[in-house]
């Protein structure tokens, strides 16, 4: 058991008060390593809440720089950060909130060649990317490396998320199978998104991360949580691991990452 400093006891007092978290849970958070893939609309709230919560090591992977059009929803980036690498901008804000943590930046595209090596260092991955090849790549790499992750998607007024614990629950590919052809599904940059939707979905992903680390409550495993912010209807759709899943099924077709996801490196 670590000795909490007085500052730590005060900083994390609202966690420590929670019966389900307590000092033990806070210690787990301080020892945890979480990787955020994408420091955009979803990664922004996730990074702020995980830093504030005292997740000891937070990795952030993104190859983009901050653009003016990001600021409507990517709340970790400020006007003065335009042109700065998103990983650096996110790191500065996380450390400004909580100097107690370590932030590792990966300013790179995650590809079939590098993703397994990068995610291996982490206990949990938060997927907040905009393109489907990347979403499938992260799923496949996490299944292969046995690393739990949270999937997040948003579009217009809608959001969806599921938590995948490889070996225990269905994966993203069990339900979604293969990336849709380019341009069939509009992206936020084509169809738009209400800024606060990113916050709604991202904070759900952050809560799932904290629940996973502290082993609290029931995760969104085998469940797709969807919401429509226009009606504020939330639904939990039960999912099942599928025997014919191409990666976690009985006879997986995908045994190497390159097989399925060549496209992602070129983006």
């Amino acid at each position: 058991m670590i000795d909490f400093t007085e500052d730590q006891l005060e900083r994390y007092s609202r966690h420590i008060l929670l019966q389900d978290v307590g000092v033990e849970g806070q210690e787990k958070l301080l020892n945890a390593k979480v990787l955020l893939v994408g420091a955009g609309g979803l990664g922004a709230p996730v990074s702020l809440y995980l830093a504030a919560a005292g997740v000891g090591t937070i990795g952030v992977a993104d190859n983009d720089v901050v653009d003016l059009s990001n600021l409507q929803r990517q709340v970790v980036h400020f006007h003065k950060d335009i042109g700065t690498a998103k990983v650096d901008s996110a790191r500065d804000k996380m450390l400004a909130i909580n100097p107690d943590i370590t932030v590792k930046t990966h300013k790179t595209f995650l590809c079939a060649d590098n993703i397994r090596e990068i995610i291996r260092e982490y206990d949990f991955v938060v997927e907040g990317t905009d393109n489907f090849p990347a979403k499938f790549l992260i799923n496949d790499a996490c299944v292969m490396e046995n690393i739990p992750f949270s999937h997040g998607g948003i579009l217009r007024f809608d959001g969806q998320t599921m938590t995948v614990v490889p070996g225990k629950s269905s994966c993203y590919r069990c339900t979604f199978r293969n990336p849709p052809p380019p341009d069939v599904v509009p992206t936020c940059s084509q169809a738009g998104v209400l800024g606060a939707i990113a916050g709604m979905l991202g904070t759900i992903q952050a809560a799932e991360t904290l629940k996973f680390i502290t082993a609290t409550g029931d995760l969104l495993t085998d469940t797709l949580l969807t919401f429509d912010a226009k009606s504020m209807n939330f639904r939990k759709i039960p999912l099942k691991q599928q025997k014919d899943c191409p990666i976690c099924g009985e006879s997986p077709r995908i045994t190497k990452l390159e097989d399925a996801v060549q496209a992602v490196c070129g983006i």
Binding site: G38, S69, T129, G159
Partner: peptide
Amino acid sequence: LEFLYFMGGGENK
């Protein structure tokens, strides 16, 4: 039946 829509989002690519 469930119609489960593909949803991207997050990063602005």
